[in-house]
């Protein structure tokens, strides 16, 4: 009997150990609520900026009124969202230097910087010569913009779906759940149309910036992102 009990308690201990292992082993390095801690006193944090929520991919999606998604532009200096709904909007805004990033494509999830020389850039034909470099480091730890040579050597044109770890996008797409999974600790440094340097973290496209999404019908696209523009023209991007 005594022996039995000892064996049992050993098992119990192991069980507890294993259970806690199972529970902790797969948690990501997300420290609780992902929304907390975005503010650093210097960066601009944008929460739940609505994209084209009436748009849809494909046919007959319930509650959606149209196919495709309208592009919108965003200007860092005054947080202005500019919609491109028609030809007049296009003429007025696309080829100007009045915007810094554009949200295009499915669920507005494909982001461009303002670069007139690339055929598929919304600003194609315009005079803006933005460039962007991807840095796989946490936003706060990116403290300096890379050299101008690095910007001109960058092959990044579109920041959207990352089809591999090495790809330039800001999210993975789960083939099992059909959900977007934002990539952590990835920062984009941008040489803006006005010559200033900025850093950008694209954080989520799901409403409320939930740490994880399991429901395919979670409201989207509502963008959470943060950025910092160095207004003195230097490459100093320190935000802490």
């Amino acid at each position: 009997m005594r022996k039995m009990k000892t064996i049992l308690s050993k098992y119990n201990l192991l069980l507890v150990l294993l259970v806690s292992l199972v529970i902790t082993s797969c948690s990501n390095n997300e420290d609780g609520d992902t929304s907390a801690g975005l503010e650093d006193g210097k960066s601009t944090v944008i929460r739940d900026l609505a994209g084209d929520t009436n748009g849809s991919m494909g046919e007959g999606v319930d509650g959606k009124t149209k196919k495709g998604f309208d592009t919108f532009l965003f200007r860092f200096s005054d947080k202005k969202q500019i919609w491109i709904r028609n030809a007049a909007d296009s003429t007025q805004y696309l080829k100007t230097k009045d915007w810094d990033i554009a949200f295009t494509g499915p669920y507005n999830s494909e982001v461009y910087v303002n670069k007139g020389s690339y055929q598929y850039n919304p600003g194609y034909g315009g005079s803006a010569t933005s460039a962007v470099v991807k840095i796989d480091n946490p936003y706060a730890e990116v403290t300096e913009a890379p050299s101008d040579q690095e910007f001109s050597a960058s092959e990044i044109n579109k920041i959207g779906w990352a089809f591999s770890d090495a790809a330039n996008g800001w999210f993975f797409y789960s083939l099992d759940t059909h959900l977007m999974i934002p990539i952590k600790n990835r920062t984009y440094v941008i040489h803006l149309p006005d010559g200033k340097y900025a850093k950008l973290e694209l954080i989520n496209a799901y409403q409320g910036n939930p740490p994880t999404v399991t429901n395919l019908n979670w409201p989207a696209p509502y963008f959470t992102f943060r950025y910092f523009v160095q207004n003195d023209g230097s490459k100093n991007l320190k935000t802490k």
Binding site: P106, E110, Q119, Y120, E155, N157, K158, G169
Partner: peptide
């Protein structure tokens, strides 16, 4: 290709 949907460059 970027000329179509879900382009990767």
């Amino acid at each position: 290709d970027d000329a179509g949907d879900f382009g990767g460059g």
